[in-house]
Amino acid sequence: TETVELHKLKLAELKQECLARGLETKGIKQDLIHRLQAYLEEHAE
């Protein structure tokens, strides 16, 4: 999932992505995007 794609997701979809990775789901859309980006960078293959 790339940065551009995360911005296209709806808030509910971002929350699902966070939940699937065991991440916090509180906060505004930008918080969730930032959290997912950090996770994806950390776990990049």
Rank of each mutant, 00 (worst) to 15 (best):
Q37T: 08
H43A: 10
A44T: 14
H43M: 06
L6M: 07
A38P: 07
E41W: 08
K15Y: 04
K26L: 07
L36K: 03
I33R: 06
K10Q: 13
E2F: 15
E17T: 02
Y39R: 07
H34P: 06
E17S: 04
Q16R: 10
E41F: 03
Q16I: 06
R21E: 00
D31Q: 09
L40V: 10
H7V: 05
A44M: 07
Q37N: 06
L19V: 10
L19H: 11
I28P: 15
L23C: 00
K15E: 10
E45A: 12
Q16H: 08
A12C: 08
L6C: 05
A38Q: 11
K8D: 08
Q30L: 11
I28S: 15
G27D: 01
R35Q: 04
T3E: 13
H7T: 13
T3V: 08
H43L: 03
T1W: 08
L40G: 12
A12P: 11
E24L: 06
R21T: 01
L11T: 12
A12H: 14
L6A: 05
E2Q: 13
T1L: 13
D31A: 07
K8I: 03
R35G: 02
K26S: 14
A20W: 04
L9F: 05
K8P: 01
G22C: 03
T1E: 14
Y39H: 13
I33G: 02
L19D: 04
H34K: 05
H43T: 10
L40W: 11
K29C: 03
L36A: 02
T1A: 10
E24Q: 12
R21D: 03
Q37R: 11
E24C: 09
I33K: 06
T25W: 06
I28H: 14
G22W: 00
E2I: 11
E17Q: 02
Q37G: 09
L9Q: 03
E2N: 15
K8M: 08
A38V: 10
R21N: 05
H34R: 14
C18H: 01
E17N: 03
E17V: 02
H7R: 11
L23G: 00
I33D: 04
L19S: 10
G22R: 04
R21L: 08
K26D: 15
E41C: 09
L32R: 01
E2T: 13
K29Q: 10
A38H: 15
H43Y: 05
A38D: 07
K8N: 15
E41G: 12
A38R: 13
E13N: 03
C18T: 00
K26Y: 02
E42T: 13
T1R: 10
A20H: 02
H7G: 11
L32S: 04
A12Q: 09
I28M: 13
L40E: 15
H43I: 05
H7E: 14
T1F: 10
E24S: 13
I28G: 15
L19G: 08
K29R: 13
